[in-house]
């Protein structure tokens, strides 16, 4: 039997994370395609709920992994969260600067929050899955 961690069976965190990002991208494109008018809010909220549900599922799946290199996960995901908070802050600044307001701003900000969480989780998971815990 190989010692390599490549063969380790883990939940499909990368795939679900990619699906969450696809949902966020669809939501942003959907909203942006209607500018400067407002996109139908119900559709935008439905896309946001799907993205948030996928992200929550991913967080739950990662939290359930046994023998996981949590210290490494927290180190990598933490620094990436800092970097993505800066990027998300710049994007939020652009939304406000461009006079986005009301329901559109709430939906876009919520999507931005979901987007901000996805890359740190995926990078942290990908690094930690190849770390030996013992």
């Amino acid at each position: 039997m190989s010692d390599s961690l490549v063969d380790r069976k883990l939940p499909p965190v990368t795939e679900i994370g990619a699906a969450a990002m696809v949902a966020v991208a669809l939501g942003v494109i959907f909203n942006a395609a209607y500018l400067p008018k407002h996109a139908p809010t119900a559709v935008a909220i439905a896309i946001l709920v799907v993205a948030a549900a996928l992200e929550a599922t991913n967080l739950f799946l990662v939290s359930r992994i046994e023998s996981f290199a949590w210290a490494r996960f927290k180190q990598v995901a933490g620094w990436f969260l800092v970097a993505y908070a800066v990027i998300a802050g710049m994007i939020e600044y652009a939304f406000v600067y461009d006079h986005t307001h009301g329901a559109v701003l709430v939906v876009m900000t919520s999507m931005l929050f979901v987007f901000m969480l996805a890359p740190p989780l995926l990078v942290g998971f990908t690094v930690a899955r190849f770390e030996h815990t013992s």
């Binding site: 395609a33 990598v76 890359p119």
Partner: peptide, 25 residues
């Protein structure tokens, strides 16, 4: 927007994590 969306998903979900993980390895 659509092209950037596809590239963002590929870069952030697959390419970036692989880059960082290979460096840690």
């Amino acid at each position: 927007f659509c092209v950037v969306g596809v590239m963002a998903v590929i870069a952030l979900a697959y390419l970036g994590p692989a880059n960082v993980a290979v460096l840690f390895e």
